[in-house]
């Protein structure tokens, strides 16, 4: 099973290696990873998609909580969070260009580059949508594909800041 975790971390050198290293060291599988700054210059936010059952998810969270730079961890479940990734897909359009453009329309993908033989699309959405789009494009010949890890936010009033447990963390684990 895939779980999406949002992790707020202090911007320290090596923090990404520490987080990623914990996953590989303990044999947890990362499906995707997205990192970026936040509006707070002190903090970055990492979104990871991990594969595993609830027991593994529990361990992942507890092990993350032990990392000194981790400020907060939030689970982003499918039904109560918005989760999006972005992909770019380059295909060799050839004489089927019109057909392909129509398909893209259905998926609300936009064209970001066109050349004599190629079209590059940009598509945003949840995993399933991106997978579905890639599947319908496959017969036309995908030249290359790149996608970001998922990012996400909980719906409604819920924010990651509710999960900041600096104090708890320092007392128990540090």
């Amino acid at each position: 099973m895939k779980h999406v975790l949002s992790i707020l971390v202090h911007n320290q050198p090596g923090v990404l290696v520490r987080v990623a290293g914990m996953f590989s060291r303990r044999g947890f599988n990362i499906h995707s990873l997205a990192v970026g700054t936040t509006y707070d210059t002190e903090c970055s936010r990492i979104t990871v998609v991990v594969c595993g059952d609830d027991g593994i998810l529990d361990q992942v969270i507890k092990q993350l909580e032990k990392l000194v730079e981790v400020v907060a961890i939030q689970i982003l479940p499918q039904d109560s969070a918005v989760r999006r990734g972005m992909a770019m897909i380059k295909i060799s359009a050839g004489d089927k260009r019109g057909e392909v453009l129509k398909l893209a329309d259905v998926f609300r993908a936009s064209v970001v580059d066109v050349s004599e033989h190629t079209v590059t699309f940009e598509i945003t959405g949840d995993e399933d949508k991106i997978n579905a789009f890639a599947e319908v494009l496959a017969p036309y010949g995908i030249m290359e594909l790149v996608r970001t890890g998922l990012v996400g936010l909980a719906r409604g009033d819920n924010t990651i800041h509710q999960y900041e447990r600096r104090n708890f963390h320092e007392q128990i684990v540090l």
């Binding site: 027991g55 529990d58 361990q59 507890k62 092990q63 909580e65 032990k66 128990i172 684990v173």
Partner: peptide, 8 residues
Amino acid sequence: IDPAEIDK
């Protein structure tokens, strides 16, 4: 003392 040890 280490929460991560429970159920590990």
